[in-house]
Design a binder for these strands. Structure first.
Lengths: 218, 218, 218, 218
DNA sequence: AATGAATGAGCCTTCATTCAT
DNA sequence: GATGAATGAAGGCTCATTCAT
């Protein structure tokens, strides 16, 4: 029932239930729209439990974000099924596909996608740490990979623009989902759909990147 | 001060002040976070004025969205400086550049960008109408343009995927601005910056689209 | 169109429309529940017209009461079709029947019944004057009539108790109408129904009064 | 002060204070006129307590009505001191006297009379349930009793008319109290006064009922 | 250690009234 | 003389948080 943790006298069970319920409700309602009453009700715990275990609503939210991001990065690492010796094309595809899997994961208990989308639209204090611990390393990895395509002398702004082009194509499906589902209601996000999307984005981007490389070297 | 008597029986002045103040505060705080007190204070009008002129907070919000969208579409139309006889490349550039101008416009009183970004992240009842009156025609126009590149027999899903690739690259700068400005604080969005971004996105996309066209015809 | 009155420069038409609309809405919603906006809307006049013509909401209400009471007393006088030479039984029936007609009149524009019922339940400053100008004369007349039955030496408390018994039976159908219509939904208040009710109340009361007279003289 | 722990998981004390303060203020001001701020102030509790314990103002009002009605019915049951073997005259007197006691009770904390009078004049959603759970059984009991006087073949409309005559005489003192106290300021409602009134109404009605019975059998 | 009642600031809205044409 | 826009006080209710057990 209760896990043995470094905090022997707090109920890890209650903490976990709050993290799960909080993720779901913050994803659905946003930080402001979510109420501690709703979260505690869904978690089946006392209304004072959030303050007791996390201090306040903000710190529960930060913990939820941290928890969801950690889970999804462990589940779908950016190198997904490749090794440093894999071809650049393969590694780009792995980066794109794993990114799609993370932001559009529909597994039960997985709320990383909508949480991050909301955090972009309405940043909270949590964003700073996320950028430094997670997003910057991710973008650096992509930049390094793109440098292999663009050559050692490619100007950093070009690399960054290409990175933006790649990531933007992916995030479109996440950030504009409300509109996409209205314009094209039949679009689904099962694993095979994401594979197809990742294939398109990779091919489209490879052509774009190579064109940029040529232009840059001219 | 001076009353523009276009709307003889309503106080156009007060309406306009509320639309401006509402746009700024809704953009900064979101629909939920914005308070009618703040909006009225910024507009310099009585707190009951929203009720009197717009009915309630929701309808003020819808009017603000409508107003901002109308302004920006008139200011930066999607065909921006081109005609139907312009080359497809030129028209694609016009589409991309005008899109950038709209979503990243920094003119005083222009809050269309952040408002739409929030509306995507946390849709309200206003989104339905926006999709039908504005976004669908816009996407249709892009699809028609892309069909010129991809050929008459290009499968609709491919056209849509390419349209998503183009729009995604643009919106990335809008939706991820909080992260971008942390990762790359020197990036600015003056008109010449947007021109450069539009140039990159257009060239990147043209290469991607042409690769897709080749692949599709194979 | 506009009546020539002692106030040549105010619109008698507007006053009249406000009195009619006010009667209907005060009757339906009570003084507190009625809003000046609703009344002015129903009257088809400007929202400031009440203050302009009557001073404020309270004084409109008092005028409405006065107006309705005057109308109904003129329409259904307490002596209704009898003369001082009619028999006491006939005069009691006339008193009862006319009372029923006044409090349950359903003619268009006639709101005296519900207005008075509300005024009893939630007295306003208007009640004082109503009591002195209308209700006291009415009760005095009834007491005088009852004294004919009870004899010259009947103690005033007995007369008052009998008067209360008579009036109470009538007002029951007015004050408890919401309950009556739930308990007995088929009951209606057309003129012939009121005639039957008046017949019953008169006969019931005559028997009661005569029993009281006997008991009193013993 | 002292917690009566009949309801272990709710604060019975706070609930009770709100029920008492609510009864007094609803009786004095009506549902609309009463403000939650006033009620909470009088109860000496926080303004959010109504929401916490009762949900909202309407449900507090319903609870107050329920509570007051229950108290007064337990305190003064309609059979008041009689048994089924008592004479019909005695049982009619008991019905009338207990009715007077309920609607004109002046004990501290007893607000059933004015509350019900207001509910008649301006019915709320609470009236439906009151009619079915309390008023209909009460009227049915009276009808059954009156049938003993009027005979087994008395037509139901006659029974109902007599019941109305009885109840109307009683309620007059409740519903017209504001007028009565102006017309006859010396009238008081101590227990002995109510006894006298009940005696009059019973005797008056017995004569009336017996006259109706004779007429009906003719 | 954990509960649930209590807190008070703040939210959107409604209202009768007044003011400037 | 009559309008309709503007006013500001108050209304019911919600919320994250704290307190007493």
């Amino acid at each position: 029932m209760s896990q043995t943790t470094e905090l022997p006298h707090t109920s890890a069970e209650t903490r976990h239930r709050l993290l799960m319920a909080g993720a779901e409700i913050f994803a659905a309602q946003g930080f402001r729209g979510a109420t501690v009453r709703d979260i505690c009700a869904k978690a089946g715990v006392n209304i004072a439990a959030i303050n007791y275990h996390f201090g306040d609503k903000v710190r529960l939210y930060e913990s939820v974000l941290q928890d969801q991001l950690g889970s999804v990065l462990q589940k779908y690492p950016p190198t997904l099924g490749t090794s440093p010796s894999s071809s650049p094309d393969e590694r780009l595809y792995a980066f794109v596909f794993s990114f799609f899997l993370r932001v559009l994961d529909q597994s039960p208990g997985s709320w990383h996608g909508p949480l991050m989308a909301r955090e972009m639209a309405e940043p909270t204090v949590a964003l700073d740490r996320l950028v430094e611990t997670v997003l910057r390393p991710l973008i650096d990895a992509l930049n390094t990979l793109l440098a292999e395509f663009l050559g050692p002398d490619a100007p950093p702004p070009l690399i960054q623009a290409c990175a933006a082009s790649v990531v933007g194509q992916i995030l479109f499906y996440r950030h504009c989902q409300p509109v996409i589902s209205k314009l094209n209601p039949s679009l689904t996000y099962r694993r095979e759909d994401l594979e197809r999307l990742a294939r398109h984005v990779t091919d489209f981007s490879l052509a774009g990147i190579r064109a940029m490389a040529l232009e840059s070297q001219r």
